[in-house]
Each structure stands twice: as structure tokens, then as C-alpha cells.
Design a protein around this nucleic acid. Structure first.
Ligand SMILES: [Mn+2]
Ligand SMILES: [Mn+2]
Ligand SMILES: [Zn+2]
Ligand SMILES: [Zn+2]
Lengths: 145, 145
DNA sequence: ATCCTAAAACGAAATCATTTCTATTTAGGA
DNA sequence: TCCTAAATAGAAATGATTTCGTTTTAGGAT
């Protein structure tokens, strides 16, 4: 997938630097969301030098250009997730194991229109996320009393 | 409305202390969301002593017991809003003037059920917020070229 | 292949919103 | 009026995130 990631970066107008690619691949390898520091710890051995600010900066840039996604977390820290799905959509997040799953197509445009009209303003963006326990975690929590 | 706020606190199982009431009333007086520090600056003259941590703590407790609402903000700082609507619902937030408006009744339970079923897990909560420009701010931005 | 330059990376240090901690005060039920 | 769990003070700590000035590099141009 290295090639594909390099292409994704080019399409986003970003240089395909080794560190940027490694950050993206590390996130791709995760089954769930990850924090900047976690990714940094996972990657720093692979480079003679890798600064934590570099990881923060790249994740932010990648999210800004839509290559990766931010997760909204109760602790208000930064978490990111790689989702290959290029359509506009939202996510279910497992609060226990960090797994992220796609929701069916976002049906909020009707709501956006209705709200724009009723308030006489402009809806510029929306946030939608479901939180809960994935199948595995729900079974582990409720299944063995 | 002082009486009503005291009652709301009692119903939430919280003591109606003067500072807590003042914080709640200050938020009630706002037309939009507010930060802990803003409320603190507005209130500290009214008391011989009022600590910023007290404001943080009270806002968090009030939000936890559902008396007030947290706003999700791009800068990831804490903002709160007082909404008298006791039904489960979500908000439109004006990114320019901080005004918050109710959205029509949340219709996400069908989605929650579908997702629970399809992933075999449990949906515990959801986040939904529309961001944009209210009527006034949209007119000011686009209306006078 | 070599140059050139804007972009990227470095990392120590700063930032600063938020939380912690321990002592003191208080609301409100008994 | 008493009692006690809850609430407050406020200085200090925290720690995730950002800033800054410098150095390095990717990748298009020559
Ligand atoms: Mn997705
Ligand atoms: Mn509301
Ligand atoms: Zn899970
Ligand atoms: Zn507005």
C-alpha cells in the first residue's frame, strides 16, 4: 500500500516524505484510532531522529487535507484514524478497544437544509459520531457473568 | 428565574450554593455559549472570593447532571451553554457570534438501532452538532459587498 | 545529474487551559 | 442548633500541544 499512500499524499498536495509516509502507514496499520504520542513511540526507533512535534504537525495536516480523520473523544485529546472510505460519512467508535467503524451514508443534508432555512443562516459543517461498545467488547462486558 | 434554577439544582441532587447559582444564572443570561474563564471574569466582582477552579468544577458538574450542555468547539476548549429544553436534542452553533439554537427532535434512534444490529455491539451515546453562521452573521458576511 | 527553493523537520522551550491538592468553609438535613 | 458531606479556596502542578529559529530535504526545473 506504500504506493497508494504516496499517491494519496500527492493528490492532497503534500510532499511524500519518509516520515509522513511512515506516520500514515502506522495509522493505516492500526485497527482503531491512535494518539500522536502513541504513533511517535511506535515510529521513533525507525528513524535516527523523529520529533513529537513532527508527528503532531503531520497528523494535523493529513486531517486538514482529508487523508485521515479526527476522532472526538471525551477526554478531549487528539486522536486520529485512517479510513479508506472517500465518501462523506461518519463513524461508530468503540470506547473500549478504539475500533472505528463506518456508519451508513450520512443523511444530514436534509436536516442541514431545513435548519438553514428555519434559522435563515448557513450550515457550514456538522459533527456526527456514535460511541459505544463494538461486538467483541459488548460480549466481553455483558456476556460472562 | 432564581427560584427555577434552585429547583433545577435540587432536582439534580446538587446543593444550591450562591456561587453555583450565580454561575448557572450567568450562563442563562448568555445568548450563546461561554467559557469557564469568561464566566469567572463576569462573576468574580460579585463575590469577595471566587476561584477559577470553582467555576470549572461547577460547570463540569452541571453538565454531568444535564443542567447545562457542552459545546463542541474546533479549538477543543471547554464551552458551555444553558438550554431550557429538557427533551433530548442537539444544537446548531454559530461559529461567529456563539449563538446556539435547538435542532428539531433528534432522529438518531433508528440509526443507533441499525448500527447496534449491524456491528453486533451497543451504541451508548451519540454526538450531533451543526456548525455555521446564524441569520445575523450570515447576512453580515455575505450581504454587503 | 545538479540546482534551487519552498516545504518539512528538528527539538528545546514555552504555553496555557485545565486539574490537583490540602486546608477551610458551608448548605441543609437531623 | 449541630453535624457532616459537599463545596470552595487558591497556589501549584500538570501535561498535551504549540511555537520558534535553525537546519534539512523533496522534487520540480535546468
Ligand atoms: Mn470511515
Ligand atoms: Mn437546546
Ligand atoms: Zn471494541
Ligand atoms: Zn451568529
Amino acid at each position: 500500500m506504500e504506493q497508494g499512500h504516496a499517491r494519496a499524499l500527492k493528490e492532497a498536495g503534500m510532499k511524500a516524505t519518509p516520515k509522513r509516509l511512515a506516520i500514515l502507514e502506522a495509522l493505516y496499520a492500526e485497527s482503531g484510532y491512535a494518539s500522536p504520542e502513541e504513533l511517535w513511540k511506535r515510529l521513533r526507533d525507525r528513524f535516527d531522529r523523529l520529533g513529537l512535534p513532527t508527528v503532531y504537525r503531520n497528523l494535523e495536516e493529513l486531517a486538514a487535507s482529508g487523508v485521515i480523520t479526527k476522532v472526538i473523544h471525551p477526554n478531549r485529546q487528539l486522536y486520529y484514524f485512517f479510513c479508506p472510505n472517500r465518501e462523506h460519512h461518519h463513524h461508530f467508535v468503540c470506547l473500549s478497544c478504539r475500533k472505528v467503524e463506518d456508519l451508513p451514508a450520512c443523511g444530514l443534508s436534509a436536516l442541514e437544509q431545513e435548519v438553514s432555512r428555519s434559522i435563515g443562516g448557513k450550515v457550514l459543517s456538522h459533527i456526527l459520531q456514535l460511541n459505544g461498545l463494538c461486538g467483541v467488547c459488548a460480549a466481553a462486558a455483558g456476556g460472562t457473568p
